[in-house]
């Protein structure tokens, strides 16, 4: 029986290897998916080491610090056995990894509910917030870049190009406080907290979007400028294309490609940034969940959240990697041929 199994496995592996060798697209996919899986696994392992192995006795983390002294003897052993701390670390690790693969990160210490449920309940709120914030950030960044590129007034261009660095240098809690002060307390246009209705979304989205729009805008302005100076733009102008037509027909698409990469990174940051925003605006979401998990030393929940954020990050970047070849024909080619060594191109 083991022989049959191994031969089936060997055949499967051989055909897989052939597929990967023959088909560059399969190869590309394998590489990128493999990278994403590795990131998630590495995060899981790192959090396991930090949260379960490093502390002298993980039971201490489970118990209210004020009451640590009272928990001793049998109760302590009982607790350790319930959470599997009595087993050797490697066994614990494999056990937890096995469960994590099925989505089971154990139960929250504070609520007793499964970690997966707690996350599943709050995740949609955060995802909507982060997606809206990303959209808003891109909108602001593109508006700035197009404005700065299209205008022929130097003072306006200088003003527009100086905005992103201003946005970058303001921390997001400052943005939150400023927005609250002006739009919630002074004008009363939008509510200061809560998560009912679209009006409660406006200020949190703005808070998240403004700081991240800065780096995207900086990148886009540079990229628009570089594309506008490219030789093929001179060809387009020589064809008789007007400035507007060149901006929309040539520059916009080619200059936007780098923004795709940064958007992937930014989305991960937005999920991480939701910790502050959701706390300040008293919204439910993964950020708030993280904040409470950390302050109550809810180890399984912390690990679940960290791995989830890593997974979201990996998924977004995977999507970007897969989207890129569809948008840029040059990458499709290097994909199909592999890269020929420099100096040997015929």
């Amino acid at each position: 029986m083991p022989k049959a199994e191994s031969s089936v496995f060997a055949r499967w592996r051989a055909s897989g290897a052939r597929l990967i060798q023959r088909h560059p697209v399969a190869r590309y996919l394998t590489l990128k998916v493999g990278r994403a899986v590795f990131v998630i696994w590495a995060t899981f392992t790192a959090t396991f080491v930090l949260l379960y192995v490093f502390p002298a006795d993980p039971v201490d983390l489970l118990v209210d610090p004020a009451a640590v002294g009272q928990v001793r003897g049998e109760l302590r052993e009982q607790l350790a056995a319930t959470y599997g701390f009595d087993k050797p670390p490697l066994e614990q690790y494999l056990d937890r990894l096995g469960h994590a693969l099925t989505g089971d990160f154990g139960n929250s210490v504070t609520s007793g509910k499964p970690v997966g449920h707690a996350i599943a309940e709050t995740l949609p709120h955060t995802l909507v917030l982060a997606a809206l914030a990303l959209g808003a950030a891109l909108l602001i960044a593109f508006a700035l870049a197009v404005g700065a590129t299209a205008t022929r007034r130097p003072w306006l261009r200088n003003f527009l190009t100086s905005l992103p660095s201003a946005a970058v240098s303001i921390p997001s809690f400052m943005v939150a406080i400023l927005l609250l002060q002006v739009f919630a307390f002074t004008f009363g246009w939008f509510p200061a907290f809560g998560d009912q209705g679209w009006r409660t979304m406006v200020l949190p989205v703005a808070t998240l979007a403004l700081p991240v729009s800065g780096p995207i805008a900086q990148l886009l302005i540079r990229s628009f400028e570089a594309e506008l100076g490219a030789s093929y733009i001179a060809t387009s102008r020589a064809k008789g294309a007007t400035r507007t037509r060149i901006l929309t027909g040539d520059v916009f698409r080619n200059a936007s490609l780098p923004a795709l990469t940064i958007a992937g990174i930014v989305f991960g940051n937005l999920i991480a940034g939701s910790v502050i925003t959701e706390t300040v605006f008293s919204r439910q979401g993964v950020g708030r969940l993280t904040q409470t998990a950390i302050s109550s030393l809810d180890v399984p929940l912390v690990q679940g959240v960290v791995v989830l954020v890593a997974a979201a990050f990996a998924a977004i970047n995977l999507a970007v990697d897969l989207l890129y070849p569809l948008l840029d024909p040059r990458i499709r080619v290097s994909l199909a041929q592999g890269s020929a060594p420099a100096g040997a191109s015929a």
Partner: peptide
């Protein structure tokens, strides 16, 4: 008036 640019390798839009 038509124009033929210097470097054919950079003078065409690479994504079109």
């Amino acid at each position: 008036v038509g124009f033929i640019p210097q470097d054919p390798n950079t003078s065409l839009n690479p994504t079109k």
